[in-house]
């Protein structure tokens, strides 16, 4: 089995591994790097549970090969909290009850991170549009929108 060496930085730490080229990035993150916060949901680029930030872009890591991420700077849900303090988006999900079962939450938070980076004070419609690539089957989205609004306000300081 031919393998390819990849070097990545994930949440500020350097990783080097030999991987099979067909290994998906989501499986690399979970099974090779041991970061299981990024979830495998639909596996068909629809649900967004596997969203991570690769070189500044939120992507569905089930639709990316690990070898494509060679040299990339990756942020996963594990990389958002700093020094034991929740990121304002995580805090928003906590304070505004933005989750029930929690399965979609990592992808939802990472996608919201991209949204607020590009648009720090989004309208409700812009939040819904910005999260259209992430499915939640519990909450009906209202509390997720509230959580992102909470985070936007907090991040604006």
């Amino acid at each position: 089995m031919a393998t390819t060496q990849i070097n990545t930085t994930i949440n500020g730490e350097d990783y080097t591994h030999e991987v099979e080229p067909r290994l998906l990035l989501v499986h690399y993150l979970r099974e090779v790097a041991g970061l299981t916060g990024t979830h495998v949901g639909c596996e068909t680029s629809l649900c967004g549970a596997c969203t991570a930030i690769v070189d500044g872009q939120a992507v569905k890591t089930c639709t990316m090969l690990a070898v494509q991420a060679d040299g990339a700077d990756i942020t996963t849900i594990e990389g958002l909290a700093q020094d034991g303090e929740l990121h304002p988006i995580q805090e928003g999900f906590w304070e505004r009850h933005g989750l029930q079962c929690g399965f979609c939450t990592p992808g939802m938070i990472v996608a919201a991170h991209q949204l607020l980076e590009r648009n720090p004070s989004p309208t409700e419609e812009e939040i819904r549009h910005g999260l259209e690539g992430n499915f939640c089957r519990c909450t009906g989205y209202q509390h997720i929108v509230d959580a992102v609004q909470y985070a936007a306000e907090k991040m604006q300081g």
Binding site: S45, Q57, A58, K60, A111, Q114, L115, L131
Partner: peptide, 9 residues
């Protein structure tokens, strides 16, 4: 096209 993540890649 698609959604934010799809358009990013």
């Amino acid at each position: 096209i698609g959604d934010v993540q799809v358009r990013n890649k």
